[in-house]
């Protein structure tokens, strides 16, 4: 199959209403890969988690910028990078444990990273305290191609 080369980069302020906007942008970009409904829903959820974390954790008491970059890698893989310049995560390994949350009082479930991990193929989190956090995720969209090629 032919390689598709494309990318998109957007910067949005950390308003909670932009959670939906980020999901819509990611969905629109991913649609080039002819994803299944399930794949689209997985991508939506993962993006929602990463962007929400920037809003509720990284920029807890301010409105900073969230950068989302999407790329198509090869013919069938979606790459998403979501970056903030917020407070950072002191212990990334701990933060990624299921049910771990630093904000139980606001009814966070501590499952954001678990969702990203299980709904995407790969997840990488890089963070530095006081500087910010970058979440990188990839997902290979194969279901439909494999079904129609058979």
């Amino acid at each position: 199959m032919k390689d598709i080369t494309n990318s998109m980069k957007i910067t949005i302020p950390a308003y909670s209403r932009n959670e939906g906007l980020a999901r819509m942008c990611a969905t629109a970009f991913a649609s080039q890969l002819d994803p299944t409904i399930e794949e689209i829903n997985d991508i939506k959820a993962a993006v929602s988690e990463a962007v929400t974390n920037c809003i509720v954790h990284a920029y807890k008491d301010k409105i900073g910028d969230i950068q989302m970059e999407l790329r198509i890698v090869g013919s069938d893989t979606l790459y998403i990078r979501i970056k903030d310049k917020g407070c950072g995560i002191p212990d990334v390994k701990k933060a990624m444990e299921p049910l771990f949350t630093t904000s139980p009082e606001t009814e966070r479930s501590g499952l954001g990273f678990s969702v990203m991990e299980s709904f995407m193929d790969k997840l990488k989190v890089k963070s530095s305290e006081g500087k910010g956090t970058t979440v990188t995720m990839t997902k290979r969209l194969v279901t439909r191609n494999e079904q129609t090629d058979r």
């Binding site: 939506k44 959820a45 929400t52 966070r108």
Partner: peptide, 13 residues
């Protein structure tokens, strides 16, 4: 038609 882990927090609460 959509729910993320914030919805889980809502239900559990």
């Amino acid at each position: 038609d959509f729910m993320d882990s914030s919805g889980i927090g809502l239900v559990m609460g």
